[in-house]
C-alpha cells in the first residue's frame, strides 16, 4: 500500500509505522527538490552575470571605458565603440515612450471609465493580443508594410512641416530610427496600458465619486484625481515599458537599417545594442570582436535589469501607498 502522486486517494498512515516514515521521507525529498528548483533561478541569474562578465573581460581589459564613449565600430581594424548602439537604443526607446505613453493612458482611460460594459472585454482582449504577436512578425510587418508606408505618406509630410529641425531631415527611406520607434511603441503599448489600467482601477471609487459630486467632468476627474492619486503607478508603468522596449530585438533589427553611424536625423539608419548582437554575433570570428559583443550584451542586460528593478520597486511602493497591500 503506497500512495501514488497520480492516484486520487491519499493514504493516511498511523504515526510510528514504517509507512509513515516513508511518507515523511517522501515529503522531505519533495521539499528538497522544490527548494533546489527554486534556487536554480538564482543560479541562472548569477550564471548569466558571470558568463557575460567572464566572456567580455578581454574587451573590457583591452578597450576600457573607450568602449562606451566612442562610436567607431570597425571589426577589421579591431576598433569597437558601442556609442552608436547605445545611442540608438536610447533614441528608439525614447521615441517609443513618447508615442506609447500618452496613447496607453487614453486607452486605459477609455477601458476603465468610458467604454460600454459589454464592449470592454473585447477591447481588452484585442489590446492584449497585440502583446502576444511575436517580435519577428512585427519585424516582417514593419519591413514590408510599415516602412514603405512611412516612406510614402508619413515621412515626406513630417519632412515638409518639421524639416526645419535637424531631427526630421534627410531622404524619407522608411527604414530608420523613427520607424523602429513606432514599432516599439506598438509593441510596448499593451504592457504600459495594462499597468495603467490597473492603476486607474485601483483608485478608490469614493474619491472619484466625490469629485463627480462636485460637478467635475470625466476628464477632470481623471486628470485631477485619478492621475494625481495614481501618479506613482503611472511612472512604474513607464519604466516597465522602458525595460521592454530597450531589449526588443527582431522587430528593430528588421527596420532600423543596421548602420554603425551616429546621426541626429530620425529618418536616418542606425542600430541598437540588440540589433547589433542579432546581426553580428555569428560573424564574430576574432576573440576580441566576440568579447566586445558579449560586453554589449552585458550593458543591455544591466540596463534592462535596472529598469525592471526600478519599475518593480516603484510599483510596489505605489501599491503600498495606495493601500492595496
Amino acid at each position: 500500500m503506497t500512495s501514488s502522486a497520480s492516484g486520487s486517494e491519499i493514504i493516511v498512515a498511523m504515526p510510528g509505522t514504517r509507512l509513515r516514515q516513508n511518507q515523511k521521507l517522501a515529503s522531505q525529498v519533495f521539499r528538497s527538490c522544490a527548494g533546489l528548483c527554486g534556487c536554480s533561478i538564482i543560479v541562472v541569474m548569477a550564471a548569466i552575470l558571470f558568463e557575460l562578465l567572464l566572456n567580455s573581460s578581454q574587451a573590457m581589459a583591452t578597450l576600457g571605458w573607450r568602449f562606451l564613449v566612442t562610436a567607431q565600430w570597425d571589426p577589421v581594424a579591431g576598433k569597437f565603440g558601442a556609442l552608436s548602439s547605445i545611442y540608438g537604443t536610447a533614441v528608439s526607446t525614447l521615441i517609443a515612450l513618447v508615442i506609447a505613453v500618452p496613447t496607453s493612458l487614453v486607452i486605459a482611460l477609455f477601458l476603465v471609465e468610458l467604454c460600454p460594459k459589454g464592449l470592454s472585454g473585447f477591447f481588452r482582449t484585442a489590446i492584449e493580443l497585440l502583446a502576444a504577436i511575436p517580435s519577428i512578425i512585427y519585424g516582417m510587418w514593419g519591413l514590408f508594410v510599415l516602412a514603405p508606408f512611412m516612406a510614402r505618406y508619413v515621412q515626406p509630410v513630417m519632412g515638409k512641416y518639421l524639416g526645419f529641425t535637424p531631427l526630421f531631415q534627410g531622404p524619407p527611406m522608411g527604414i530608420g530610427m523613427l520607424t523602429a520607434g513606432v514599432i516599439l511603441a506598438l509593441m510596448i503599448l499593451p504592457f504600459v496600458s495594462s499597468v495603467m489600467r490597473d492603476v486607474l482601477e485601483m483608485i478608490p471609487p469614493v474619491l472619484k465619486e466625490s469629485a463627480y459630486g462636485l460637478g467635475a467632468t470625466t476628464w477632470e476627474v481623471t486628470k485631477d484625481v485619478s492621475l494625481k492619486y495614481g501618479r506613482a503607478g503611472m511612472v512604474g508603468a513607464i519604466f516597465l515599458g522602458l525595460g521592454r522596449a530597450i531589449g526588443e530585438t527582431m522587430a528593430v533589427t528588421f527596420v532600423i537599417g543596421n548602420d554603425h553611424s551616429l546621426s541626429v536625423s530620425l529618418f536616418a539608419s542606425g542600430n541598437t545594442i540588440a540589433s547589433t548582437l542579432a546581426n553580428e554575433f555569428t560573424e564574430a570570428s576574432e576573440p576580441l570582436y566576440l568579447s566586445a559583443l558579449v560586453e554589449l550584451g552585458l550593458v543591455l542586460f544591466l540596463m534592462a535589469s535596472a529598469f525592471q528593478l526600478i519599475a518593480q520597486l516603484w510599483l510596489r511602493a505605489a501599491a503600498v501607498r495606495m493601500g492595496t497591500q
Partner: peptide
C-alpha cells in the same frame, strides 16, 4: 531565500531574450 528567488525571477522575466541567447552561446 523565497524573496531572493522571486526577485531573480522578476529580473529574469525582464531580461532581453537576445541576452539569454548570448548567455547560452557562452555556456
Amino acid at each position: 531565500l523565497a524573496t531572493a528567488i522571486r526577485f531573480c525571477a522578476n529580473t529574469l522575466m525582464g531580461a532581453p531574450s537576445i541576452v539569454i541567447g548570448v548567455f547560452v552561446y557562452t555556456l
